[in-house]
Nucleic acid binder design. Sequence first.
DNA 1: TATTAAAGTTAGACTTCTCTAACAAATATT
DNA 2: AATATTTGTTAGAGAAGTCTAACTTTAATA
Lengths: 226, 226
Amino acid sequence: MLSFTEENYLKSLFHLTVENSGPGETGTNELAMQLGVKPATANDMLKKLKEKKLVNYMKYSKSSLTPAGKKLAVTIVRKHRLWETFLFDKLGFTWDEVHEVAEQLEHIQSEKLIGKLDKFLNFPVHDPHGDVIPTAKGVMKTPSKNTLAEELPGHQCTLVAVKDNSTAFLQYVNKTGLSINKKIKVVSRELYDGQIEIEVDGKKNRISHRFAENIIVDCKICFERK
Amino acid sequence: MLSFTEENYLKSLFHLTVENSGPGETGTNELAMQLGVKPATANDMLKKLKEKKLVNYMKYSKSSLTPAGKKLAVTIVRKHRLWETFLFDKLGFTWDEVHEVAEQLEHIQSEKLIGKLDKFLNFPVHDPHGDVIPTAKGVMKTPSKNTLAEELPGHQCTLVAVKDNSTAFLQYVNKTGLSINKKIKVVSRELYDGQIEIEVDGKKNRISHRFAENIIVDCKICFERK
DNA sequence: TATTAAAGTTAGACTTCTCTAACAAATATT
DNA sequence: AATATTTGTTAGAGAAGTCTAACTTTAATA
């Protein structure tokens, strides 16, 4: 049985390595930053998790999750996203409110609860942010992810996820008229600063490159979903 | 902000003092027993909670909740019972499974969550065990509580709550054909050992005095509810 | 009332997670 | 390559919650 803290470390490691399809490993400082903790603290925990065979750790080198660690991390991510879906779909929370509460709910220990919640929600595939919900067996369907910043003018795509879950960002997303599964048309892009002009529900808007980088879109599932 | 542990102490104090309408105060050993902790540990916490002005504590004497402590305790009880209702009504948990999971869920910190959950559940008045759910303002309607052991032969009443929430007890309750709001007719009682013959759904059953003492019934709301 | 039993308290220690401050290794820069 | 900067580690300490073991107070009883 893992403590809340240990679970949080596994989850952060998962986000920093597996999920963002980066180098597959992360440094102590980076991990500490993600968790809002001092590097010394993260270092201690890495050693502890190495003892439990959940993390590959070697002095002065990068760390990664072992298969066992990855499996546990995925179940935590699954719980987090199912709870977010519950809060959004059933309780009427807004997009930008769900994360904080789900951070707490994800640590509830009950296999049965998660199974029944999954069923109650009708086995959702995405959470309210568009992120994939792993199955009970730990399988994550990896969708083709492009950021809006990479889309070319003239293209039409669908918002499937956002990278940044901060309240400030999400509220800005809402203000721009965007939401999950919303169709976006790229009108033009500025070569100088990467600013993009988009069209949403027939309304045109100029967004910064930095903002666009945090919007994940999919052209394949574009017109299939409501 | 209280820790999980502090919340658990407040809740136990509430159950041992206010709710069971006992003497309104409880001893260190009794509290420790309830929490499954050693008296020394409970003693430390009582002093800590006294510092926070949530508990009335004096060396070598009984302890009780201050008004502030009582208020906090009631909100925890409210959360616990709302979650139990959710698990039972929406997720299809059985009567005897909900308590354990609700013990964890009750510590989630989000006023908004509880408000929305309350609404989602349609502002329930009782939890699956028949216990009263305090309102958002902390009001608990105290129902007229008699135990089945006190009912006289010939009387008809409705099961509104149980005193014992242990799995063993609840499963026995189920086996006897009883559940919340079930009509019970007292057929006869044995003067020698207090054994009672009851009729539930036309089926007769003999139950022990000890068992009957843990069944709370109400004759007033007898035939009003489904 | 004197003694025993029960209830309550204290002191010191352990675990988990965190920190600061000093130090060591690896990487980047000139 | 020598130095500077970044990154990572260690040692020591503190807060929270728990324990054991020894001790004190209160209540029960003979």
